[in-house]
């Protein structure tokens, strides 16, 4: 059914720290590697080694330069994947029931065997989280590695989405955002985690953590690059510097 089910209270999702992300794309490539053999396999690439390589990816890293009103600018590396929204419009617009949200953990999935490939769900998603596979004729999207996080054949520390396993900087955290006492919920609480495009009324489960405020030492100007020597030593060094030129 494409109606949003009554939540069990469990809302699995990701917390992405924009302050830590360095934009290395390790999360996107490991996502591609795991999922091309996973639930929505394969993640087709067309012309992979040619002039115009395109393909299905569940996770993409954009890099932005943000200039604040005071003129200061910062770089934001911005990983974007499905936010597994509580009020997911991609689910309710689906005419076949192929797009669905799981009651037990809130993961949004597409049934590859019943999707008719009408693409309406990708139009309905304001975030661009869904990518159509023109080779398979069906819609594909982040599964939150549903085939990894519950996999008892894997050691317990590996039972997290591939992007979380891969991130070398620890910018990605995975957990139950429906549980107020979970580590991820506390992280969101302490760092002022926010929703993307809240005005779209999708109630995304995934949260983003903002850049920390730039800390500029109060005495920054006075400590900047002063000669460490003075007097005779200074004159000597100047003389050596001159003679060497």
């Amino acid at each position: 059914m494409t109606a949003i089910p009554k939540s069990s209270g469990k809302k699995l999702g990701l917390v992405i720290d924009l302050d830590i992300c360095v934009g290395c794309h390790a999360c996107t490539t490991s996502c591609k590697e795991w999922n091309t053999g996973g639930y929505s396999a394969p993640l087709t690439d067309t012309d992979p080694y040619g002039e115009n390589p395109t393909g299905v990816w569940f996770n993409r890293v954009h890099t932005f330069e943000v200039t604040a009103p005071d003129g200061s600018s910062q770089t934001i590396n911005f990983p974007k994947s499905c936010l597994h929204c509580d009020d997911a419009p991609c689910v309710t617009v689906c005419p076949t029931g192929a797009s669905f949200k799981r009651a037990e953990d809130g993961i949004v999935l597409v049934n590859q065997d019943t999707c008719i490939g009408c693409k309406l769900c990708s139009w309905a998603c304001p975030y661009g989280a869904r990518e159509y596979d023109s080779t398979d004729g069906v819609m594909k999207k982040c599964t939150l590695c549903v085939d990894k996080i519950y996999n008892e054949d894997l050691p317990e520390h590996s039972r997290v989405p591939a992007c979380v396993s891969a991130c070398p900087t620890g910018a990605r955290s995975f957990g139950d955002l429906g549980d107020r006492d979970s580590a991820v919920s506390k992280l969101v609480e302490s760092r002022g985690g926010f929703d993307l495009m809240p005005e779209q009324q999708c109630s995304p489960v995934n949260k983003y953590l903002p850049l920390r405020k730039k800390v500029v030492p109060a005495n920054a100007a006075t400590t900047a690059l002063r000669p460490k020597v003075s007097g005779v030593a200074d004159a000597l060094l100047k003389w050596i510097d001159k003679s060497l030129c």
Binding site: L18, P53, T54, H62, T63, S122, S134, L196, M197
Partner: peptide, 25 residues
């Protein structure tokens, strides 16, 4: 600004696209 969560009034410029070729989106 609301798409990536910056303060209102900030200007946002895409300096690196996630992919070299146009994708489905």
């Amino acid at each position: 600004a609301s798409a990536i969560g910056t303060r209102p009034g900030s200007t946002v410029k895409l300096t690196q696209s996630p992919h070299s070729q146009a994708n489905y989106l």
